[in-house]
Design a protein around this nucleic acid. Sequence first.
DNA 1: GACCCGTGGTCACCATCTACGACGTCGCCA
DNA 2: TGGCGACGTCGTAGATGGTGACCACGGGTC
Lengths: 336, 336
Amino acid sequence: MVTIYDVAKLAGVSAATVSRVVNGRSSVDAGLAARVQQAMAELDYRPNAVARNLRRQKTSIWAVIISDIGNPFFTSLVRGVEDVGQAAGYSVVLCNSDEDPAKEARYVAAALAEQMAGVIISSTGKAANLSRLVDAGTPVVAIDREVRAAAVDTVLVDNAHGADLATSHLAEQGYRRIACITGPRRLPTAQRRLQGYRAALTAYRLEPDDNLVRYGDYREEGGYQAMASILDSGAAPDAVFAANNLMTVGALECLVDRGITVPAQMGVVGFDDIPWAHLVRPSLSTVVQPTYELGRTAALLLVERIAEPTRPLSTVTLRTELKIRDSSAPREQRFR
Amino acid sequence: MVTIYDVAKLAGVSAATVSRVVNGRSSVDAGLAARVQQAMAELDYRPNAVARNLRRQKTSIWAVIISDIGNPFFTSLVRGVEDVGQAAGYSVVLCNSDEDPAKEARYVAAALAEQMAGVIISSTGKAANLSRLVDAGTPVVAIDREVRAAAVDTVLVDNAHGADLATSHLAEQGYRRIACITGPRRLPTAQRRLQGYRAALTAYRLEPDDNLVRYGDYREEGGYQAMASILDSGAAPDAVFAANNLMTVGALECLVDRGITVPAQMGVVGFDDIPWAHLVRPSLSTVVQPTYELGRTAALLLVERIAEPTRPLSTVTLRTELKIRDSSAPREQRFR
DNA sequence: GACCCGTGGTCACCATCTACGACGTCGCCA
DNA sequence: TGGCGACGTCGTAGATGGTGACCACGGGTC
């Protein structure tokens, strides 16, 4: 490995001068600087980031800890983070916790041990993981999922409102027995989306029925199971609102398997878009989240938090939007 | 930050002893070890990985550099890498090059500077990036895409064979004017898949026609454009083989927009599965790659390479499999 | 009494950064 | 013109946290 001393020796200066040239922090005589530059080029010198990190007590890497790499929700979110991060001089690496608090804890520990410059995290819900970062002084931004017990900047979408939109839309289309498949109980997004669903029922004077509600796991399998369970319960839904994209897919699969046609026999609206939603037949109505913007916003917050660690906490809530496609076609056209 | 010295002072031992307890390398008296453990717990001591990395001259992190985080192909591949990596004591972080050699170079530079323990990379094609890693002694495994000019272990799928399978299948189903949308010219996977397509044409005595071939960008947009271009050229295809999943989706969209029905007017087979392929109507026939296994195999090779840096290079080629669904239904049923 | 082994401390080292001080030059003023 | 202060530039030295080679010590064994 070529070190700063090798460069210094070749250029006939001290290591400190080479360091100054590399970092451009302090003024160095132009002639000397040129000699150093040449020596660096000649030796193909690359500063050792590990040593630099140790000395500076921080790195120039951000960790983005996401809860499910298989969920396309995160891909454009990550792009948003990356674009801002790169522009600000950071490398962005991704860690996949797979909804497993233990795996999340591992990555949090790694981020701490490696002294990452910042962390953006979609938490599995364990506040302790976040607090550990905050206590160590690592700048953190929570994304998609708020963590009440931890004092961190947060970027959310208006989950309740989006769910309300979706459910209201179904109600307006004439559906009367609207089921809801929400996410894991412990996740605030699941709670909020359920709230929004219930608010819409109330607004449209539809009878709430616990037999129409299930808690899934935010994955395809869970959506399938929940849909099957609702159907088997005899609750006789005529529509379903699924609280995330993968569960919507799972629910659809279940409906296909049971020979239930959408939307003729069952209206469907999902929360969060899926790629190729328009290729799926029938095309899926969904609550669309501004995923890229979510990532961007989180990254901007992180930049600000790094620049000013003591600034007051902020929570940014972004708007969702209902995208109406075929799976929630008006019921009255067929049955009234 | 709690350092090893703080722990040492509290436990009344030297820092070296604490280090020994932490790493369990050398024998330490049980009583002392217990005191050290207690002191560590009391202070919530976490070893500084940066300092350790500097001293040891390597980290315990793997970087997986992928070319498109939006492509679901990579998600299960990454899971395969992670499962093996975690088991072997490594943390796995993801870097997204977005098919941009400059971004790839950035991440390679970061992996070098941070002295990553190993790198698994799906290269954009710039051999220089790989060689830089190899020259610096970083263990590297190329995945999905071979890089001829670089001396690295490689894990591939039988691209030509898979493309041959897909094209032959279309031919057997009675399609005669089979188009091909392959990937960027510079990528070996694109070349191999085109080879396989041509081999199948030859085998079935179908006339090759350059008007039926396009080079896309492995993204949705490129698939759309390529499909449109083929249709506009007057080449009159009756089927199309698209050389990756996202381009297949793009091609389908184009067909939908033009009112061309699949498979009645156009048979379609894609390379690499997409999630929810069975929900898309018509359901998509695809060449399925063993993505999880790809990741797993690459990770295992990396482990071996780390253990034995001088072992001879190996290339593992995994089998693909044709999954027949509705988009390639027999042509003769309708037209003969 | 010599040797060995288990145990634990000392110290050099990893590559880089930076506070501090030294040195030289320049300008200003007497 | 000489002296002094200011400033720019550069080197020295210590610091960053942890590791491991080496050494010292003490007790046991032959």
